[in-house]
Amino acid sequence: PEAADLRALARHLYEAYLKYFPLTKAKARAILSGKTGDNMPFVIHDMKSLMEGEQFINCKQVPIQELQHQTSTLTAGLGGFAGAHSGSEYGFLGMSSISGEEPPDTLELRFFHSCQSRSAEAVREVTEFAKSIPGFSDLDLNDQVTLLKYGVIEVLIIMMSPLMNKDGTLISYGQIFMTREFLKSLRKPFSQMMEPKFEFSVKFNTLELDDSDMALFLAVIILSGDRPGLLNVKPIEQLQETVLHSLELQLKLNHPVSLQLFAKLLQKMTDLRQIVTDHVHLIQLLKKTEVDMCLHPLLQEIMKDLY
């Protein structure tokens, strides 16, 4: 009976994962391996292809709803970042336009802003996934906030891995493949942002997890009882222990010949924390050095006093 419960939990989390995350690993790998027929991603490898890529983008235009007032208020002092996007068509990768007349230095910033928009949407998806973990919504609300604050960037980096190979990454819901070399060619410190994620992802992908494994692993990350400032650790640890048992069983059944996969996966959580720490420090550096940079209010909330 216990194993049956653990399998039911794995199925439940996999269904939630499929519901809330639009680009699964299965889809991403099909795109990356060219198994999607004529529907190949547009490749961005230099400034010319970056400009040409505009027609391939179909960014989500999220209607203004409940948070309009709040985000407007929050962004009023931030150069109106979110407000600048709402009410108008998204251009390339969420950018208003790209023309040769604009100073080259602004390109990285605009690209960075478009990445922030997608990241904020991804935070919403991760939040919905977290809420689907049995018992999560019964935790103290402050602890739910803490778990998301500390876990969400780790989750996003794990979710980025299936989109990456050693040569580049899918972006814009799999419509575009941006090469690693192009990202490295951006000016500093933007050029330094993605390289650690590529290095991590290439190694992480050798574990060959599938989407059902990923769903459990993401839940384990979210339910970390050692996040700073948690008020009531015990119920979080109890929830995580159940998900860990479910993950261990899942890996035994799904990867019977992959020895020590469970242990190897848990070790990745240590690497993840370092990557997030470095990422947050890089963002803090950007805030100091880039006069025109404004951080999305949701990401600002998450990164403030994080590490």
Binding site: Q65, E66, L67, A82, T146, L298, I302
Partner: peptide, 21 residues
């Protein structure tokens, strides 16, 4: 803590409908 994280708090409290980010 939730006072300092109003958007996260709202995402946690809201239904699953998309919100403007």
């Amino acid at each position: 803590l939730k006072e300092k994280h109003k958007i996260l708090h709202q995402l946690l409290q809201n239904s699953t409908s998309p919100v403007d980010l």
